[in-house]
Design a protein around this nucleic acid. Structure first.
Lengths: 222, 222
DNA sequence: TCAAAAGTGTTTGCTATACACCCATGA
DNA sequence: TCATGGGTGTATAGCAAACACTTTTGA
């Protein structure tokens, strides 16, 4: 079977930068390529857009296949179409990024399955194609959005403490944050609420557990 | 001549939202479609990405053909890939937006040539495909960027007065701004400089002419 | 009782906003 | 001389940043 057109068509893929917080680090999911080109190198998960599938659905499909999660935050990042970015044929890729709560991971990505791995954004391997650039832009976007939106809440499990939320901010911003100012600001947004429950662990005062009021909503700040 | 692939490929186009300020309004360039589908309706300028042409080059080519300008501000907006957005075949479009200084326009777009026209963003006709949505997102992006960048300078001719710059802000924001505060803020950015020249027109004090110091630079504010 | 993280307010500086009058010109 | 838009400074309010001690618990 083959498909013919009157003029040349590029191939279109989606690639997805999957971020999560694990082991006190901001991490991304990478796949070891099984085939040429770049066989054996690490790359972003992704694949061809099906002819009867919307772009975002394609990205969600990849995400589900790699991590077993759905219903997480997913946003289109940018479209990369340099003529020579793939040596095989003209390939245009629509890149997305996803934020996955640390407790939601399953199967492939959760286990350290062969050929799939989580990498700290600070200790990335060489990447195939232009994926280093894509990942860099995704990281930039994430840092920028932290400043004017509640996007970081997307990393949190259903219930969490303010200290762990603060830690997420510190990891992404790469700088320490003042505890009192942080709590004041976060609570003033009215986007999270006290569950009434407490989390006690270790020889210290128990921490209140909060939840995000509307998970689907990324509020804009200021 | 025909081109064959082992699996179906979508077509890829670029569409471009060309903004300018004319007649004291924020305007966009539209083209009247000469062919089906949507024959006779207004649409964004755009066309198929050539197989040996980068995405941004494709958009610049469209821009040049329609307005005769090059070297203006152009930014990728978003990629639209709903399965049924084009009734002919699967078409994925990478949308860009451009900001053109009001004095740079030539030929086709400058004249009111048949089938090409400038429309106020407040008085748009029905648009073909999903172009109304694309245009809406471009407009949103422009408004948002006004707040945290010097993107509006891209609308200005080489030399301009602070009053005309203020007017551009007011048109895009759809609200009046305070003259003293505006001047204070703009000048504090150190992105424009006094040319030493004056513009005299009408029975009132002449206005100082300014120029953008580095036209290629969109400074981010705050 | 000690060590460890949770929780809590006030002061200070800076930035954004509100606001009104004189200036230079052409007709 | 008058009508028109160009040009200028200060006072105030609101927000962001700095900063230190008390509380609760488990061992």
């Amino acid at each position: 079977m083959s498909y013919s057109y009157d003029y040349p068509h590029p191939a279109v893929t989606t690639d997805i930068v999957i971020f999560t917080i694990r082991q006190d680090e901001l991490m991304v999911l990478l796949i070891k390529r099984a085939n040429e080109p770049f066989k054996g190198e690490w790359a972003l998960p992704g694949g061809f857009v099906q002819i009867d599938e919307d772009l975002e659905n394609g990205a969600r499909r990849e995400l589900l296949e790699e991590t077993g999660v759905k219903d997480v935050y997913l946003e289109q990042l940018y479209t990369y179409g340099a003529v020579d970015r793939d040596p095989r044929e003209r390939v245009i890729t629509v890149a997305y990024y996803a934020l996955v709560p640390s407790d939601k991971m399953e199967i492939r990505a959760a286990s350290d399955a062969e050929g799939v791995g989580w990498f700290s954004v600070d200790k990335l391997p060489e990447l195939a194609f232009d994926h280093a650039r894509i990942l860099g832009m995704a990281h930039e976007r994430l840092v920028a959005k932290l400043d004017y939106s509640t996007i970081a809440f997307q990393f949190m499990p259903d219930e969490f403490t303010l200290s762990t939320l603060q830690r997420v901010y510190e990891l992404i911003l790469r700088e320490e944050v003042d505890k009192r100012n942080f709590r004041k600001k976060i609570l003033s947004l009215k986007q999270i609420e006290d569950t009434g429950k407490e989390q006690r662990e270790g020889p210290h005062r128990p921490a209140k557990l909060y939840r995000v009021i509307d998970r689907s909503r990324i509020a804009f700040i200021k």
